[in-house]
Amino acid sequence: MKSNILFGASLLASVAVMSSAASAQTIGFSQIGSESGWRAAETTLTRMEAEKRGIDLKFADAQQKQENQIKALRSFIAQGVDGILLAPVVATGWDSVLEEAKEADIPVVLLDRMVDSSDDLYLTAVGSDLVHEGKVAGEWLVGEVGDAECNVVELQGTTGSSPAIDRKAGFEEGISGHDNIKIVRSQTGDFTRAKGKEVMESFLKAEGGGANICALYAHNDDMAVGAIQAIKEAGLKPGEDIKIVSIDAVPDIFQAMAAGEANATVELTPNMAGPAFDALDAFMKDGTVPPKFIQTESKLFTQADDPAAIYEEKKDLGY
């Protein structure tokens, strides 16, 4: 008898726990894996954002495999989560699992990358506009040099990759109409430090020991960091003799900016989860349907933005 009462009490208690858990949101997050430092930072920030909002985040690392992501999504659906964040590893092959989520009335938000499925299968997609990033960098340079003649050398990303194509197009858009700014050399640095350094060395030699170069535009910060070393080894002052603007805003470029060796970077924010949670929240509260693409801010950072402090902020995010 006594044990029965105890059993009943514990049953009641567990029901109470369950209902309190249901009032807080449970969101599943299927991450691609740890392919890059930026990805790691995205994961860290997603967890921080979830914690800040009191969201119970179920995290699944797919180790770069789509089948793992589909499995994770199915298990989220089976657990009856309130929403799903998906950073898709590839663009195709999502139709059936997204339909399953739709049938279960679970909204799916895409992070950073797009899928080829019909857009009524997901709530919205949060991402950056690569062309816009390049444009912000170009516009910064226009404002920086004014009417002075400026020969720019460009370190492209991996040939044929969409960031390389879009960031190049965006930059050219940003400087268009300013004939004093010319791209004199453009070569791929494969997004790596080593190639960035090697290619910059050859740029310096090809352009009169660097005397003809007024600015460097690198499609990512890592190549800029390599190029900074090449410029220093050539006896020039990066940031002064050659202005440097790049994209991504990884911690190391803030260190360079704090030392006066880089001038500006455009942030590809790893905080895609913040806008995603906001959209999910609004949708669940009163059914506000967000636009199909939420563009994250491509924020420009310069030496005036206290780079040393931002470095301290960013260095532990897992970049």
Binding site: Q156, T159, G160, R185, S186, Q187, T188, E198, V199, S202, F203, K205, A206
Partner: peptide, 9 residues
Amino acid sequence: ILLSGFPPE
């Protein structure tokens, strides 16, 4: 190749 200034493609 780097010195020649050809496009990276």
